[in-house]
Design a binder for these strands. Structure first.
Lengths: 141, 141
DNA sequence: TATGTTGTAACGATTATAGTTACACAGCCA
DNA sequence: TGGCTGTGTAACTATAATCGTTACAACATA
């Protein structure tokens, strides 16, 4: 299961857009996400390193480096998956090479898994954050 | 990250096909996968419950209920994901409903995440196990 | 300078996974 | 029928990821 860091990151970026003019602290964001401010700051550190936002020590808030319509869900996904295995599917290691199945299964599955992962990522790449933000701000509920 | 149970299950099913005529024990399968026989039996228990194979206590091996060309990677994926959250993407819980973002982000993300997950699953559904087995048995390596 | 904020280290709690031991029970064969 | 082999499953351990939390140094600004 892909961690909720992804959804929290989208939440953060949406709030940054919404409070573009002012300065929103990690504490306020944490209040909306309903978690601890440090969790938010950790995530913003990742978004910062990925070049999606710009933040600096001591000063509240952060600014979007690119407009939301130039950020896709895939960009965010990759930003927060940093340090985690970039492969979506795990393959068991060290199968027995003396067995033809053990010898060849890894490369065969790699190919198939890569296709499935690409299909998923392409779908994420089709959605920009301004679409998401619009859906959120204009949801009928 | 999706657990290696998935790849192990494919490994097991391929071996069952390969040793269709005889009887292959969980110990032998474990030797090919390079793990503990209990891990294999646990997995076969899941495949059994999912109706993909038939095995019975005391008797070595298991038989495929359906031919490999009638089993897709998605079938296997679902069989071994049993009991795990069926949603691929986690969404943070209890965001603050007093904030418009907190109030609406879950449903918005659910929609987008569901599409990405479907794209991945459709790709898995396109591949049958006999294709995988053929790739494994005839790999150039 | 005083206050508030960020960035980050460190630690604990929780959970998923995978390996291992143990054993009851079922089937099979001499 | 008695012994051997194998399955099914519970129970325990180790490991790793995730998330929350406390603590604190460094920084910015009024």
């Amino acid at each position: 299961m892909i961690s909720s860091r992804f959804s929290v990151a989208v939440h953060i970026l949406t709030l940054l857009e919404l409070h573009k003019s002012g300065r929103i602290t990690s504490e306020l964001i944490a209040g909306s996400v309903n978690t601890n401010p440090v969790v938010i700051r950790r995530m913003m550190s990742l978004l910062n390193k990925a070049g999606l936002i710009h933040s600096s020590p001591g000063v509240a808030g952060a600014t979007l480096v690119r407009p939301l319509y130039e950020i896709t869900l895939l960009d965010v996904y990759r930003a927060v998956q940093v340090g985690v295995q970039e492969e979506l599917f795990a393959i068991h290691e060290n199968p027995n090479p003396a067995c033809i199945v053990g010898k060849n299964i890894q490369s065969t599955l790699e190919t198939n898994f890569a296709k499935a992962q690409q299909a998923m990522e392409q779908e994420l790449a089709r959605v920009t954050l301004d679409q998401v933000a619009n859906d959120i701000l204009h949801a009928q509920s």
